[in-house]
């Protein structure tokens, strides 16, 4: 059996073709401090420069043996391109991702998406970073992502306006979700044209501990479906939080695979989805990979439990917190590659 490159492994898995062993990859942030340090930069500077973004991603993957790189790292690029100012926390000693502290729009009436938004703000960096990664690390799969329309709306407006608007200003909320969905489709197409290997639609703001499944069905599901239909394969859908009540609807949205976080019991999830759906998750990204009190063996058991529970690929349930415990992180990756040699429910082995 010939060993596949990480990129082949990921892409074959996403097509549900037989692979050599389970990849360790993600639809969300995979940048870690050892990779950032190896590339010689500090955290606040890797979000604003293509070289820095590309090399911190490449070194994170190489040092930890990840099968992919994922860019961008932060959730504010689109909102910034719409005119908001980001906070990079350049002076903080802590690892803090860029945020939008104050939003320019304060009502549901003001949202206006600029034409060709991918040419604005920091977004063009992404195409440059993809190019650098392709040239220098052709063995790695390149993942990109877009926030879903509801979560993205929370980056450009106060989220409570959207939440209350569902009841009080239904038409306006639908109008904003539609506008943002159009933008997400366009940016996703541009990322795919720029050379990313797979794309993830991540909609963490709609889990069943925030919105009702009925609201999900009426407001969110149709838009997720439309966005995914607008993109080429491979494309994934990720929702954080309580997802068991949503899984059946998630699987109707047209993604090639679904990913969940630690609040989903993957065994139950697999029962709901059946054996054919590509189903991935759900490393506890604080306890298992960052908490110095977690012994390596516990992290290994965590990974084995997930694989035994019926997932098709081990994925962090969220962005990896960059300040990883290296030993635990490597153990998670190695266990996935070693323990994942047997077929999973949806994907066979070579």
């Amino acid at each position: 059996m010939a060993e596949l490159t990480p990129k082949e492994r990921v892409l074959r898995l996403l097509r549900k073709e037989p692979i050599d062993t389970m990849p360790f990859f993600s639809g969300m942030g995979m940048v870690v401090m050892p990779g950032i340090e190896k590339s010689g930069y500090n955290f606040p500077t890797v979000h604003t420069d293509a070289e820095r973004m590309a090399w911190s991603a490449i070194w994170s993957a190489r040092l930890m043996n990840f099968d992919c790189v994922v860019i961008p790292y932060d959730m504010t690029m689109e909102s910034e391109a719409m005119g908001n100012t980001i906070s990079l926390y350049a002076d903080s000693e802590d690892i803090l991702y860029p945020t939008i502290p104050n939003k320019i729009w304060s009502t549901l009436d003001e949202v206006e998406i600029p034409d060709k938004i991918w040419e604005k703000g920091r977004l063009p960096i992404l195409a440059d970073a993809i190019k650098i990664i392709k040239e220098n690390a052709p063995e790695l799969a390149i993942g990109c992502w877009q926030l879903g329309p509801f979560t993205q709306a929370g980056q450009v407006l106060e989220l409570d306006l959207m939440l209350k608007g569902i009841f009080k200003q239904k038409e306006k909320v639908e109008n904003i979700l539609d506008k943002i969905s159009d933008m997400i489709i366009d940016i996703g197409k541009w990322l795919q044209a720029s050379g990313c290997d797979y794309i993830t639609l991540r909609e963490p703001g709609v889990a069943a501990d925030l919105l009702s499944p009925k609201t999900f069905k009426n407001f969110i599901q149709p838009r997720l479906t439309r966005i995914l239909a607008g993109w080429e394969s491979p494309k994934l859908l990720h929702i954080c939080g309580k997802t068991e009540p949503l899984l059946a609807m998630m699987s109707e949205c047209g993604a090639d695979g679904l990913t969940v976080d630690i609040k989903c019991d993957v065994k139950k999830g697999r029962e709901i989805l059946g054996p054919d759906v590509l189903f991935m998750g759900n490393i506890d990204t604080y306890t298992m990979t960052c908490d110095e009190k977690t012994p390596k063996d516990k992290a290994i058991e965590h990974i084995k439990g997930m694989i035994d529970g019926g997932i098709d690929a081990v994925m962090p349930g969220c962005d990896l917190w960059p300040a990883i415990i290296e030993e635990n992180m490597k153990a998670c990756v190695d266990t996935t590659h070693e323990y994942g040699k047997n077929p999973s429910p949806a994907v066979g082995r070579l």
């Binding site: 939440l163 209350k164 009080k168 501990d209 919105l211 009702s212």
Partner: peptide, 8 residues
């Protein structure tokens, strides 16, 4: 009820 209702 979910979070939108609780906020209202």
């Amino acid at each position: 009820y979910f979070v939108p209702e609780v906020l209202m």
